[in-house]
Design a protein around this nucleic acid. Structure first.
Lengths: 188, 188, 188, 188
DNA sequence: AATGAATGAGGTTTCATTCAT
DNA sequence: CATGAATGAAACCTCATTCAT
């Protein structure tokens, strides 16, 4: 266990913010979870709000990286769609707390403008990707945002179910849902 | 404006909890929004936690009523599916704060067991409805929960977009999305 | 004992700031001295800094009122000088804590601009008064500020001595010192 | 700049205590100003209170030395009075921070008994000097303490004015004020 | 000897709750 | 009934002090 306090604090905050929200999480709670003194947190973060913003931006950046990494070079839209779907699922499953936190915090009053625009930039990537599919005539005559609602909304809810045990994840299930989502957005 | 303080307080709390979350909302904030004294809140609710639970249960009950009301008697699954979809959308659009609050609060640490089981009961209705479609062989070979993720998740995300103006609602758009969802879950 | 909490808090703060300075005085100390809960102080003052500034301005205003009240109408400079001297002494003796506080806090970093300019306005009155004496040829060829140093400085130090018992005040003593000050500033 | 940390710390503390008071100055502030680590301060001083006391005593000792040095041997009271006045002024001008700190800290709750009695001893020297003048019949029929109020109080206030630029020091001005003070205390 | 990261006691401030009016 | 002034526990944050390096 490398004694990286900065990272420990962020991970502790991640967990607690996901469980109890920003205002429901106290700094001493974070300190205890991170196994540091409460004052130590203020050596690494200016205040609680800076901490939550730094955490949010880091999580969004890793989320974006997950999505971008391995994004198919050739313009095979079906392949790209599948990539995006599986990467959304992968991030939500490998970082369930981060994923839950990002979605709960997006647009929250404690986020600063940089954080909000970082998140928008992330969503824009998905939107641009779907727009390509529309231009190629592969998708229905709905706004790209509607497709986001379907795909992202589905993954979001799925992640909740995986987390609380309502649903057990399996390759088969995910393949089925990916196909469902594709059928929901593809033309004809 | 009838001077129904009990109701005013609940509506004020609804609005604020939706905007700032449970812990980010103070009792004096609720009092000001409801145009009552802070002490008055304690004549109608034992404490803040009881208030949030009563609010949650009321919202879930109205949500359930919206869904049940007009549920097609005859066993026409396609019609019933459409009913459920449109009623989810109707509730989310007519009570955006309540809808946002319900989804943010579901499973939150401040809910008591009664509230949690009320919400589960509500979800069970949707699940049972989808199970019928499966039994009738009209839906794909996926768990009913997966369909919930798709439909409910889509409506949830859609509602967010309507609220923040990312997407403009229209009959045509909703019809298109309803069809998408149906295509996502129906067999063939 | 009228239960004027606002006033009680100001008086408690006055006493403690005079004894221990602004930073050496804690809000709970003020609360205890004022016989109120710590939180109550924040119903009357936005924060500690607003409290110290309101206190300062009130004290300066009463100091100025003491000086202005009964200021001789006729332009008899000697009489006016005596008036100013005795009123400085009166305020410092009737409000030793306020006087000590004003002198310690003038120019302090926790005072806002309004407070500082209030104090300057007060000092300006004394300066204008002395300037009249200079114009009338009754005072020495020194800047009015030098006279302030002599008169105000003397009264300030005198007040300290009265407070800590180093010197016992008496009419005779004050008359003697007033004469000394006059001899220090008057021409010839 | 010799690397005398002990001295650097004292000088840094001097400056900061003069500007912000004892409680308004933090140990890290002193460390930064002295260009040492915060922990280093505790190698040279037991704690903050010991530091402030040591500083106070050193400043008072240098103040006393300034006054004693060159004190006229022959019993020429007028000369001695002038010496004292000019040495008070000299110290206050050459060590404005120390002078301001001494006067603000005298009697403060954080000074220990040794520090307080050191300061009293210093004041006693001035008092004894003035008593001689009284015995020689050269001064008015006022207590020596009253003369201290006049002379020390004047110099104290003058120093404030020099520091904040309200008054510009000059040989002529000082000569004039010294004469004023003498006229304030001398018989006839 | 010197440092500065780490800490927890204690500072300022907020807020759920009570209660006299 | 309704209120909002009052409160103290607990929140956020600071800082004197310690101690491993």
């Amino acid at each position: 266990m490398a004694d990286n306090k900065h990272e420990n604090i962020l991970m502790a905050a991640q967990k607690l913010f996901a469980e109890r929200g920003y205002d429901g999480t106290t700094v001493p709670m974070i300190a205890e979870e991170a196994r540091v003194g409460a004052g130590t947190i203020y050596r690494y973060f200016e205040n609680k709000q800076m901490l939550v913003n730094e955490l949010f931006r880091g999580s969004v950046a890793r989320f974006a990286a997950t999505l971008h990494e391995g994004f198919p070079e050739q313009n095979d839209f079906r392949k790209r769609f599948r990539h995006v779907f599986y990467r959304l699922v992968r991030y939500s499953r490998e970082n369930p707390e981060a994923f839950r936190f990002i979605n709960a915090a997006a647009n929250a009053y404690f986020l600063d403008e940089v954080s909000k625009s970082d998140f928008e930039g992330f969503m824009d990537f998905i939107e641009r990707h779907l727009d390509e599919g529309k231009k190629a005539g592969l998708l229905r005559g709905l706004p790209a945002q509607a497709f986001i609602a379907i795909v992202y909304g589905t993954v979001f809810h799925l992640s909740r179910m995986f987390e609380d045990g309502t649903l057990e994840p399996s390759d088969e299930l995910l393949a089925g849902i990916e196909e469902s989502c594709w059928d929901a957005v593809s033309a004809d």
